[in-house]
Design a protein around this nucleic acid. Sequence first.
DNA 1: GAACTTATGTCGGTGC
DNA 2: GCACCGACATAAGTTC
Lengths: 94, 94, 94, 94
Amino acid sequence: MPTPSVGHNSDAMLDTDEPVAADQLRLFIERIERLEGEKKGVADDIKDVYSEAKSSGYDAKTMRMIVQLRKMKAEARAERDMLLETYKAALGLD
Amino acid sequence: MPTPSVGHNSDAMLDTDEPVAADQLRLFIERIERLEGEKKGVADDIKDVYSEAKSSGYDAKTMRMIVQLRKMKAEARAERDMLLETYKAALGLD
Amino acid sequence: MPTPSVGHNSDAMLDTDEPVAADQLRLFIERIERLEGEKKGVADDIKDVYSEAKSSGYDAKTMRMIVQLRKMKAEARAERDMLLETYKAALGLD
Amino acid sequence: MPTPSVGHNSDAMLDTDEPVAADQLRLFIERIERLEGEKKGVADDIKDVYSEAKSSGYDAKTMRMIVQLRKMKAEARAERDMLLETYKAALGLD
DNA sequence: GAACTTATGTCGGTGC
DNA sequence: GCACCGACATAAGTTC
C-alpha cells in the first residue's frame, strides 16, 4: 500500500520513502505524457484523413457533419438500449 | 439505390465511377470513425491513469499542472533549438 | 457612438469620457449579472420539476435519459436538415 | 410499460390511472424541456452581451473576472449576514 | 468566428 | 446522517 505521504522504512529507517514516492509520481506523469503524445498523434491522423479526402474532392465540413450525424445515431441507439435496461430493471424483468 | 448523384462514364468504360466514389467516401468516413474511436480510447486511458494516481494519493489537479508545465518547457526548448538551427543555417554552419 | 477607448468630447473637451465609459461597462456587467440570476432561477426550476416528479413516483435518472434521448433525436433531425441544405447548395439546387 | 408507480383505482373508479400517469410523465418531461429551452435562451443572451461589450472595446475575459469577483463578494456578504442572524437568534435578539 | 479540448463546478451515489 | 467521491454538464480557452 504505497502512499505518497511520508512514512518509515521497515529496515532501519533508511530514508528511501521519498525517492520511491517521487519515482511513482514521475512514472504516472510519464505514462500520461506518453498517452497524450499518442492522442495527439491520432488527432493528427484524423486531420490527415480530412486533408486527403479534400484532395479527392470531398468537402471537410460536410464530412464532419456526416460523422457527427452517425455518431449521434449510434449514441441515441445506445441510450435507447440503456433506457430499455432501466425499464426492465425497474419492472424486475432482468 | 446506390447513389443520388448523377453522372455517366464516357466511352466504353463500365459504370464503376459512382460506386467507386461512394466507396471512397465511405472509406474516408470509416477511417475517421475508427481513429475517433482510438482517440477516445486513449483519452479514457489517460483518465484511468489520473484515477490510479489519485488512488495512490496524488492530486489530479496538481498533476495536470505538472504535465502542462513540462509541456511548456519542452515546447520552449524545441523553439530554442529551432531558432538555433535557423541561425546555424543562416551562417552556413549546418 | 460611445466607445470605451479614449476620445474627445465634441464640446470644448469637457472630460466626460471616462464616466461614460465606466457607466457603459457597469451597465454591461449589470445586464450580465441579471441574466445570470435568471439562468440560475431557471436551473432551480428544473430541479424543482425533477423533485416534484420524484414525489410522484418517477425516477429522475430515467427522466433525464428520456429528455436527453429526445434532445438527441431533435438535434439529429436538425443536423439532417442542415446536411440536406448543404447538399442542395453543393448541387446548386437552392 | 405503464407507470413507474403501481396503483389501482379504488372502487368504482374508471380505469384512468395509466393514461393519467402517462400524461403526467409527459407533462413533466415537457415542462423540463421548456425550461431547458429557456435556460439555453438566457445563456445565449449572456453570450450576446459579451459580444456586444467586446464590440464596444471591452475584454470578455476581464469582464468575466469582474462578474465572478462581484459574485464572491455578494456571497461573502450573504454569509456574513446569515452568521449575524444566527448569532442574533442564539442570543434571543430576533 | 466556429470547432475542439480542457477545466471547473455541481449533483447524485456511497461508504463510514 | 454527513461527508467524500466519482460522474456529468457547463464553461472557458485555444486553435484553425
